[in-house]
Amino acid sequence: MTNIALELVNITKKFAHAETNSVTGVSLTINEGDFVTILGTSGSGKTTLLKMVNRIYESTSGDIFFYGENIKKLKVEDYRRKIGYVIQQIGLFPHMTVEQNIATVPKILHWNKEKINARVDELLKLVGLGDEHYKKRYPKQLSGGQQQRIGLARAMAADPQLMLMDEPFGAIDAITRQNLQDELINIQKKLNKTILFVTHDINEAFKLGDKIIIMDKGEVQQFDTPYNILFHPANDFVKQLIETENIINRLKVLRVENFVQPLTQPTKLADGVIHNDKFLDDVLAKFFETGKKRLVVIDDQEEPIGEISWDQFIQLKKIQDNVVRLDVQKKNIRRVNDHD
């Protein structure tokens, strides 16, 4: 049974004195555990949309439901404490140590000292700054990337159900950025958070998102899986946006798990294997590396769950059709599960 974490119904925002809407008629449903990226050019309304979710901005019209409750009816502070918020400018409190920054929300929730300390240690480890001495540092004594990690840790402190992230890796060099992206994917997998993540980097949006919201001029152009956006763009805007991507870049954003076929023969020790959370460019590399025509797909427990073949691979069109069929099957399975 999948819960609906967030539902936006016809959300519009027009700032006072502005001539046009910044966001117009956005309706969408986000399931619990979804990692949703919001992609769009500068000024397309990404930040405005995000800030209406935690009521930093009030929507001009429309309603937002958080686990079924209209957020206008909730006490705004209580509601925000259930949401982790990471802003582009990081916004760490400069007069507080790393530890104090992270402990801010747990403290106002009156957690006891041991619990707070344990939580701080846990989070620092999670974001890769587990070394004891980081705790007592002030934000100024950290690099930009480290500050960004602390911002992430602080946002997760009270174990929020929903995370809102506004271009959190915007100001970070490419390598550190990739590391942080990978870590975020790991964290999301481990903790099954629902994440709304704003970016204007198309690669980032495709790499991170299970689903992508594409925005232009304050309107949602398409809200779909990376696969569907690449192969079934909803309109010319989306088409143009993805046309800038070459074939290799497209492979980079397609996850193996979407292309797994049933095993055609028993697995052998000599088989080439590929992990199901890898991407199709990794598959391509593996084909070249091993010289095999067939790779066995394994899951987290290293159990074989299917295969992916060279023949299937070179006919993307065919893959596409199969995946669509698989998608339908998955949905049917989900529906069956939903009923019990």
Partner: peptide, 9 residues
Amino acid sequence: ILEAGRGMG
């Protein structure tokens, strides 16, 4: 900094 504070409740 203020927005971060408000945003965390």
